[in-house]
Write a protein that binds this DNA or RNA. Sequence first.
DNA 1: GAAGGCATGTAAATCGTTACATGATTTA
DNA 2: TAAATCATGTAACGATTTACATGCCTTC
Lengths: 189, 189
Amino acid sequence: MSSHLSPTARVILGMLRLGAETGYEIKRAIDLSTRFFWSASFGQIYPELRRLEERGLVKARPDPRGGLKRTSYQLTKTGESTLHDWLTDSDSYTFELRDEGLLRLFFGDLLTRDEVLENLHARIEFCDFVLDRFRELEPEARTGFMEEDQLYPHLALSYGIELMEFMRTWCERTLAQIDAGELPPSPVP
Amino acid sequence: MSSHLSPTARVILGMLRLGAETGYEIKRAIDLSTRFFWSASFGQIYPELRRLEERGLVKARPDPRGGLKRTSYQLTKTGESTLHDWLTDSDSYTFELRDEGLLRLFFGDLLTRDEVLENLHARIEFCDFVLDRFRELEPEARTGFMEEDQLYPHLALSYGIELMEFMRTWCERTLAQIDAGELPPSPVP
DNA sequence: GAAGGCATGTAAATCGTTACATGATTTA
DNA sequence: TAAATCATGTAACGATTTACATGCCTTC
């Protein structure tokens, strides 16, 4: 049997294992945590849950909680072991980046010095914006964002914060160097 | 008229402006430079060049060089100004990341300590691999990878190298801390 | 009873990779 | 002359976002 997991399936199984039960809760968990490095939309989550059920990795049941009709899912034995297989499979290693600010910097030779500086400035503001979002998440991550005894989400957040601080520092330094003429004065186009 | 540029159109126009002429050359330029933060495949490039011609942003002509039959493209006036508009548009700011190693770390509570350490180790090896690729590109980037007077590609590469070094250092530090028990001992699943 | 959030989903459009097909030219 | 590289493209598939539609429940 094929044990391949689509990108979205990977977060879904993990979030189910961490305590989320419905598609809605999975989406909320993602938006509060992994969305900066592994996002998913409703349009992916609901159909994928169906597919995972067909494959026997999750089991659906009507949600016992009163009120709204929801569908709750839980991992099956197969689901658990497939999740664990993926979590320990070093061969699967997607790392994809799409960074428009960096692409603009790459094309810096096509711009005036002031335009490059303006782009770096915008990038710094972007870092600040993301850092603010990250710091809002800190308390939640520190206590475990769904149940207790979840310590690694906080570690991942720390990584994100340090990464953004690195980006910000790099931009400030580079901006200063270009401003001081120590780095490429681009030919006026 | 709509001046929206698809992701692939953005690199294409930029690479044309930097001196690439054919779809093949654009692809090669991308693979030698932006592919780590802005990639594109032949299956995207050739159809997109057609679309850009229909929109009047580029002009095709049979390649003057003898030998193989190629199609060369060059930017039109409209193409030039559309490119410049995008390069100076701070509102357009895609930053997308898909980082499987980080997702595994996020789910670290579902693993044994040794399994987490193994994942961090794999991530360090990944950083080393990318750093090797980057350092291979250095000489090319330093001299201008298509024509002279291209200084920013080298700056973007420096950024990539420092970023990878940051990631590597973070992983080593975290690995040591977990190993020393200073960071979350995960409950055995 | 109106507003706002909870909850689930579908359809369309876009975006992208991969695999395949083809043939020409250059180099060993 | 065989192999490698140049060069262009299509088809199939998979992934993803966005916009839309629906309706229940809670709170004011």
